[in-house]
Amino acid sequence: MIKRLLALDGVLAVCRFRDDGSLVESYGGLATEKLAALSDVAHDYRRMVQGQADQVSMFTGMRGWTPPRGWVVRGEALTLCGVGNLVCVLDNGEGSFNDILTEMLEVSHW
């Protein structure tokens, strides 16, 4: 079902991974080994962001940081966006980031 994310303008690839980081499924115009590496990196990023959010929450005493919903790294031409166990590679020049994020938030619950 995550394949439907590929139908959105600007989404170049999408992966879903297990809680141990192993790749479950992936779609898009990247080589298989790159998608597996992307899945590894996204899994690591997810855990790091969780760790940082726990600390921000602990130090600020402010509710609402945890559990973090996702992370975004925006490069010059491409963006990586992780939500739950999903990660997408996005083309900065196409589509609406807001729409993509909204769709990822929905799809990540399936």
């Binding site: 590496a37 855990r47 602990m58």
Partner: peptide, 23 residues
């Protein structure tokens, strides 16, 4: 408890950064 949370997070960070550097 706070110290263990901080130390776990940084250890996790350096290990994951190491994996990314290896890639």
């Amino acid at each position: 408890r706070m110290a263990s949370i901080m130390c776990r997070a940084t250890t996790m960070g350096v290990c994951m950064q190491g994996r990314m550097a290896e890639i």
